[in-house]
Design a protein around this nucleic acid. Sequence first.
DNA 1: ATAGGAGCTGTAGTCGCTACAGGTTCAAGG
DNA 2: CCTTGAACCTGTAGCGACTACAGCTCCTAT
Lengths: 139, 139
Amino acid sequence: MRQDNEMTTASYGIGTISKHTGVNIETIRYYERIGIMPKPPRTAGGQRIYETAHLKRLAFIRRSRELGFSLDEIRALLRLVDGGDYSCGEVQEMTLAHIADIRRKIADLRRMERVLKDMAAKCDGGDVPECPIVDALSA
Amino acid sequence: MRQDNEMTTASYGIGTISKHTGVNIETIRYYERIGIMPKPPRTAGGQRIYETAHLKRLAFIRRSRELGFSLDEIRALLRLVDGGDYSCGEVQEMTLAHIADIRRKIADLRRMERVLKDMAAKCDGGDVPECPIVDALSA
DNA sequence: ATAGGAGCTGTAGTCGCTACAGGTTCAAGG
DNA sequence: CCTTGAACCTGTAGCGACTACAGCTCCTAT
């Protein structure tokens, strides 16, 4: 573990924050390239040095991805947070929009499931080469 | 509309089958490139000529995509159909596996929705720059 | 004969990563 | 102090399933 020479500010290598957040090393570098993670300071040799703030930001991104936010949505969320003058209302609005999105996806999947279930039910599962599923799909 | 000179076998240009199936022209050519649509005959000038069989196959692919089958799954389905010796049981098996997949996706999305709803509920939506959603995400 | 819509090929971009190849740096052990 | 080897670096290419474009050629109707 590295130590700052002035203060007791913890620093971590990229592998450490990768393990901590569960985000792949390559993905972290990718996030930096596309600008949702800031360019961190480097050692004399060019290796990235992260601090607690980076760790928190990466955890935020990770959790948001898990909850289905796109990187663009996360970018917007982070812009609010970075601006400093974000309001709770704005964040809530985006979250509600995202929930609506998820609901639409669920509805679509349920429709698919129903159709497929109906098709599978018409099938006797035998060896004959006349399948109602195939018929239903090409109609 | 083109007409065969021997029989009344209907032929269509790529634009026609695109409109009929709702599959983009570029996508049809892409399907040909990756081998899930066969290479059709061409006019002297090199334009693709399709017949009713192509139309049915493309409709099959379209519908399967709509129902969430991946191109790889569709390829497998088509291999069964093309082989001619497919059994209804095999098709049904793939369909049931796909249904299980859809159920998993629905469960995931529902979990997401619940978490987001809980987070949004904690938010008073006001103008204050302290948002429980942001806190929840970075924790 | 000509205008213009339809079609052609080939390439590059999208999203969100992941997987290399081929090199450099760092920390620990001898 | 030196060596080993793990960790890190850059840059590029690949995935799936398209979509978009540039810059042509072809076909049909007037």
